[in-house]
Amino acid sequence: MMRAERTPRLPRDNARVLGGIVRGKRTTLRVPTEADLTGFARWAADLRVRGALTRAYWDEPAMLATWKERLAKQSEDKSSTLWAIDGEGALAGSCRVEYAIEPGHFGNDGIGITHFTIEPDRWGQGLGSDAALALHRWIFDIVHARFAHTALAAHNAGALRVAERLGYETYARGTAVHYGDGRYVDGLQLRMDLTTWDERWGATEREYPVPLGEELEA
C-alpha cells in the first residue's frame, strides 16, 4: 500500500503582521521599527489623542521596554498588521488592522481598523486623509477584503469627516458607550464595502494604474 505524501506546509505567514510599504501622495505606510516606539509611546499618553475615546492609539501608556515587548508580540500576531506612517520625511503616525483567521469567524473577509493615530502636532494638514486612503487601497485593492469596519466616538468630528469622505456608513449607534472629559459620548460603528471603494476610488486609486504587468510589456 502506498502512503500518501504529506501536503507540504505552505508559507502562509508572509510578513503580514508588520505591514510593508503602501504609498500615498504625501504619506507612506511602512514597517514599524523600534526607533518609532518613542513616538508611539508619546501619542498613547497624549490627552489630545486619548480624547478620541476609542482606541485611536495602539495601546495603553507604558514604559519604552513594554513598547518593545508589544512590538515583538505584534510581529508574531497573525491576525493583525501594524504600520508606521511617514509624512513628508518624518514619522507622522501609526495604524493597525485586524482580521479573522478562523473559518466562519465573524468578520471573515472583512478587515477592522483598530487604531489610527496621527501626531497631534500635525493635525489639520491632511496627513490623516492621505494615509487613510493609502490604507484602504491596501484593504480593498491589494487584500480585496469584502468590507472594512471601524468604531469612532460620536464627537470625533475630524475622524468622521475622513471616514465619510472615504465612503463609510454608520450601521450602529451605541448609547453613551464612552466616557471622557466629564461626559458620556455615543459610540458609532461604521462600515465601508468593496463596492463603495470600487465606485468611489476605483478609477483613481489603483496601486498599478494600468492592468497589472502591462507596463512590463512595453
Binding site: 454608520t170 448609547t175 460603528q189 462600515r191
Partner: peptide, 9 residues
C-alpha cells in the same frame, strides 16, 4: 436595537 450589520455571515 442599536444597529444592523448587513451581510455579516
Amino acid at each position: 436595537q442599536m444597529g444592523r450589520f448587513p451581510r455579516s455571515w
